[in-house]
Design a protein around this nucleic acid. Structure first.
Lengths: 153, 153
DNA sequence: CAAATTCCTAGTGCTATGGTATGATTATTC
DNA sequence: GAATAATCATACCATAGCACTAGGAATTTG
């Protein structure tokens, strides 16, 4: 029951973009350096975020990446679902197709657990936006946070 | 973010024991057959459940396994934590030791997400007991559930 | 003693993860 | 035109965990 680095790096990268939103496109290299993530690996991840429309890209000199929407309109759930697939503890609660593969769907007592689990996780992740993180970072900074690669504002 | 079969098989096996509690020790073979799980594999899982005191074993002919406590006193969280380790999306929120490995612990904005996620999952899993499942199975049976390997009562 | 059953150790094939390496192509700015 | 950057492609690799399988030793009952 662990998230892989895909989801975690993705969230950090998007958070980084949220903090630098307004400065124009942010090159991948800057994100990778600030967040201490392998640039090549991050490239693979952000390609998915672009395909799913969470970020826009600008080519060429002074190019880079931009959030496609306001930080308040992007949830952590949006990001993680793109990078890790459906957020569900077992396949039989993740989507219609997978549900149908389970013969016992209506009778299965145990499935109820996974359903509750899934709903509770998604609820948490869908109520946190990048704007929430940005605000927290600003507060932390004001309250004297020092290190934190998480908020180079 | 998937559970492995360890956690899922474990829950099903314990649920099976809950349903057959009172019949004396349940041999592993019976559980494995009813739940359609590899006997040898299940053996390895139940060994951990025994070491952690969730089940008792009786050797020899007519031996088998028994829940060590009342079904109402065993939560799904108890079972999954034994078989999958701490239920946490990232290590830095799983326990003290892991927390200490993270330099940024106090300042890290993103960590708050994983903390909330962890708490919400654990809350769900710790409020469901084997007795709850047993009751649901009995209800389902009365309401005409037919198939469901989940409740051979 | 034979059968049933738990207990224990080892090995195995597969897949996903988390990268690295290399290079070519396209678009943009100065 | 040079530099900067995204985009695309392909391939490789080491490690770890998963989901078993195999085989046998120890224990208990009848």
């Amino acid at each position: 029951m662990k998230l892989s680095t895909k989801g975690r790096y993705g969230v950090r990268a998007m958070f980084d973009l949220a903090l630098h939103q307004g400065d124009g496109p942010t090159p991948l290299r800057s994100i990778a350096e600030r967040q201490n993530i392998s640039e090549h690996y991050l490239e693979q991840l952000i390609a998915n975020l672009r395909k799913e429309g969470l970020v826009n890209s600008v080519r060429g000199a002074h190019g880079g990446y931009l959030l496609s929407k306001e930080p308040a309109e992007i949830t952590i759930g949006d990001i993680i679902r793109v990078l890790e697939g459906p957020i569900a503890p077992v396949d039989c609660v993740s989507d219609k197709v997978e549900e149908d593969k389970c013969e016992n769907i209506t009778d299965c007592v145990v499935r109820m657990i996974w359903k509750k689990m899934k709903d509770s996780i998604n609820e948490v992740l869908d109520e946190i936006t990048l704007e929430d993180l940005r605000q927290e970072a600003i507060n932390a900074k004001q309250n004297g946070a020092q290190h934190g690669y998480m908020y180079h504002i």
